[in-house]
Amino acid sequence: MALIHDLAFQGAQMLLVLLLSPLLTGFVRKVKARLLRRQGPPLLQPYRDLIRLMRKDVVLADNASWLFRVIPYLVFAATWVAASLVPTFRSGLLFSWTADLIAIIALIGSARFFLALAGIDAGTSFGGIGTSREVMIASLAEPAMLMIVFTLALIAGSTQLSTMAAFMNSPEVGLRVSLGLALIALIIVAIAENARVPVDNPATHLELTMVHEAMVLEYSGRHLALIELSVMLKLLLYMSLIACLFAPWGIAAATATPAFVAVGVGAYAAKLAAGGFLLAVFETSIAKMRVFRVPEFLGAALMLALLATLLRFVSGSF
């Protein structure tokens, strides 16, 4: 019985992240538009876009290989699995032990690995430019992310997200220098990972400035829909991650009553909204960087995270 119960929650979580992610993207776009005093697309526009894309024919480049057609599904699968393992409104997910935080990071890494390959497959220079910049960004963002994970894991004594969230929710945590450093670093990494301004601009279509969009330039139809969906999922994932680690308030425990679960859902929605809003504000208030400023930006994150880890190693009180 308990198993079915847990299974149901796990299923709910998977569906929730899948369904919620376009909404989050739509929300961010909407807020951005409003901040720019534009009307902006409706909140549900991303859903429509996705459905329309899925119905369209796929136009493949002449040179595209079988891998090119497989990659959207791989990327989607990896991102989805990762996203469904981050506690959102209720901790103690059935399969939470399948992958701890390190593995979740690695799953996102897998998705990026394949996407980067897709960028090269068509044999155009634009895909290559995207791939080459993406791997450079990843080569700094990933270690930074791992260092953040180390810091948090050392504080919580675990890399298991459920345990970490539970610990963060407990009064033991308090305000810590290392936590603050990790948070800043995590935000920087999240911005880079999600190809947001100032690292990348998801809205641009000027080839020389784009990174992520350049990689997926050759995708169309349902493939593009899956990629877009993965991008949205990833944004949601990072928001959930930050929420779960740094604002774990309201997440229902595994044994919680339905009422607490409802509170958890509410709190999660609020957190996402807040996160989306802040992201939009941040993005509208800053300009995109030159590509070769990005390493410095990310290097700062890496250094902050490393500093946080070092502090934790040196003393438990930081």
Binding site: F76, A77, T98, T159, Q160, T163
Partner: peptide, 22 residues
């Protein structure tokens, strides 16, 4: 288990399954 665990089999199954389902 409270500290860390990893299940390659399930990750593999999940990824395959979700990719196939999609």
């Amino acid at each position: 288990e409270s500290r860390s665990s990893y299940n390659g089999l399930l990750v593999f199954v999940f990824m395959t399954a979700s990719g196939m389902i999609a």
